[in-house]
């Protein structure tokens, strides 16, 4: 789906940045790249432009510009209620974070089950039951 179709509060992961020339390059320079996590912060009074949060920065994009960005909708783990089974999509962190999460069975593509809600969260992975803290749950994105 297109980035412009995402609703306020929702999160997506970029799959493709289309367009050509200046607009294409500017989107890329702002860090909107395949794999980037992007959240809709709010709409302006006329619904256009839209404010997004990307890599901890707030950016305003016109709808016509957000149309160039293809995304998949994802959910930060802390927002998932207990009882749901979800697939891990993205770990938004450095090498250590990815390694630590991998050691308890949380890595992209893996299915996990939420036992108790955030935070700390109790989850069941292929490697057993584990606790996930707030600092971690906010950086794990699932679908």
């Amino acid at each position: 789906m297109k980035l412009s179709e995402l609703m306020p509060g929702e999160t997506g992961v970029v799959t493709k940045v289309a367009g050509t020339g200046a607009i294409h390059r500017r989107l890329l320079a702002m860090g909107i790249l395949p794999g980037t996590v992007i959240r809709v912060a709010r709409l302006s009074p006329f619904g256009d432009p839209i404010e997004y949060e990307i890599r901890g920065v707030f950016i305003s994009l016109r709808k016509s510009e957000a149309d160039y960005v293809e995304i998949d909708r994802i959910i930060p783990l802390h927002m998932v209620p207990a009882g749901e089974k979800v697939r891990v999509m993205i770990l938004d962190g450095g090498v250590n974070f990815i390694r630590n999460m991998g050691s308890i069975g949380i890595s992209p593509g893996k299915i996990i089950e939420i036992l108790s809600p955030c935070c700390p969260m109790r989850v069941r992975t292929a490697l057993g039951e584990h606790y996930v803290g707030k600092g971690e749950a906010y950086r794990i994105y699932v679908r």
């Binding site: 200046a22 607009i23 989107l27 432009p49 920065v57 950016i59 305003s60 510009e65």
Partner: peptide, 10 residues
């Protein structure tokens, strides 16, 4: 020509 209006809200 249309110029990008990708603007940061600092």
């Amino acid at each position: 020509k249309a110029e990008p209006f990708v603007m940061e809200l600092p």
